[in-house]
Lab assay of single mutants.
Amino acid sequence: QSSFEIPDDVPLPAGWEMAKTSSGQRYFLNHIDQTTTWQDPRKAMLSQMN
């Protein structure tokens, strides 16, 4: 996992939702293809902008 956290005020891509496990770990739900991931989809968006 990357060492940086994206602030919560940065919006997720369309169709995504952020949730937390009972222990507080963030994960991401993709409602478009109905998958979940630990990888923040905003990181991919930001790396494409740089």
Rank of each mutant, 00 (worst) to 15 (best):
Q1G: 06
Q1C: 05
Q1A: 10
S2A: 07
S2H: 07
S2F: 07
S2P: 03
S2Y: 06
S3E: 08
S3A: 05
S3P: 12
S3Y: 02
S3K: 11
S3F: 03
F4M: 12
F4A: 08
F4I: 15
F4L: 08
F4S: 14
F4Q: 10
E5L: 09
E5M: 12
I6V: 08
I6D: 01
I6N: 07
P7W: 06
P7Q: 12
P7Y: 08
P7H: 15
D8E: 11
D8K: 07
D8N: 11
D8T: 09
D8P: 06
D8H: 11
D8Y: 05
D8G: 10
D9P: 04
D9I: 09
D9W: 04
D9G: 10
D9S: 11
D9R: 08
D9K: 10
V10R: 10
V10W: 04
V10E: 14
V10Y: 12
P11H: 14
P11E: 07
P11V: 10
P11N: 12
P11M: 08
L12I: 07
L12C: 11
L12T: 04
L12V: 08
L12S: 03
P13S: 02
P13F: 01
P13L: 02
P13G: 04
P13I: 00
A14M: 11
A14T: 11
A14W: 07
A14L: 09
A14H: 09
A14G: 12
A14E: 14
G15S: 06
G15M: 07
G15K: 04
G15Y: 05
W16F: 09
W16R: 03
W16V: 05
W16E: 04
W16K: 05
W16Q: 02
W16L: 02
E17I: 00
E17V: 05
E17D: 12
E17N: 05
E17A: 11
M18G: 06
M18T: 07
M18R: 07
M18L: 12
M18Y: 06
M18I: 08
A19Y: 04
A19K: 10
A19T: 09
A19D: 09
K20Y: 14
K20L: 13
K20F: 14
K20A: 11
K20Q: 12
K20T: 12
T21K: 04
T21N: 06
T21E: 06
T21D: 12
T21M: 06
S22Q: 12
S22P: 11
S22M: 10
S22R: 12
S22K: 13
S22F: 06
S23H: 10
S23C: 11
S23P: 03
S23G: 12
G24L: 03
G24A: 04
G24E: 07
G24N: 13
Q25K: 10
Q25G: 07
Q25Y: 06
R26V: 12
R26Y: 03
R26W: 08
R26D: 08
R26C: 11
Y27T: 03
Y27R: 01
Y27E: 04
Y27K: 03
F28T: 01
F28R: 00
F28K: 02
L29V: 12
L29E: 04
L29M: 12
N30S: 05
N30Q: 00
N30C: 10
N30F: 00
N30E: 02
N30I: 00
H31N: 05
H31V: 08
H31E: 05
H31A: 08
I32M: 07
I32E: 15
D33E: 13
D33V: 09
D33Y: 15
Q34T: 05
Q34E: 08
Q34R: 14
Q34F: 06
Q34Y: 06
Q34D: 05
T35M: 13
T35Y: 15
T36G: 04
T36P: 01
T36N: 06
T36D: 00
T36E: 02
T37G: 03
T37Y: 00
T37M: 03
T37W: 01
T37K: 02
W38N: 03
W38K: 07
W38Q: 07
W38F: 12
W38H: 05
Q39E: 09
Q39H: 14
Q39L: 09
Q39M: 12
Q39R: 10
Q39P: 00
Q39S: 10
Q39V: 13
Q39F: 14
D40C: 02
D40F: 01
D40W: 01
D40I: 01
D40M: 01
P41Y: 00
P41E: 02
P41A: 00
P41T: 00
P41G: 00
R42D: 02
R42F: 01
R42I: 00
K43C: 05
A44L: 12
A44F: 09
A44S: 12
A44D: 14
A44E: 12
A44Y: 03
M45S: 11
M45C: 12
M45Y: 15
M45H: 06
M45A: 11
L46Q: 14
L46S: 14
L46V: 14
L46H: 13
S47V: 11
S47Q: 15
S47K: 13
S47E: 15
Q48V: 08
Q48K: 15
Q48G: 13
Q48R: 11
Q48D: 14
M49Q: 11
M49N: 15
M49D: 14
M49F: 14
M49V: 14
N50M: 02
N50A: 10
N50C: 09
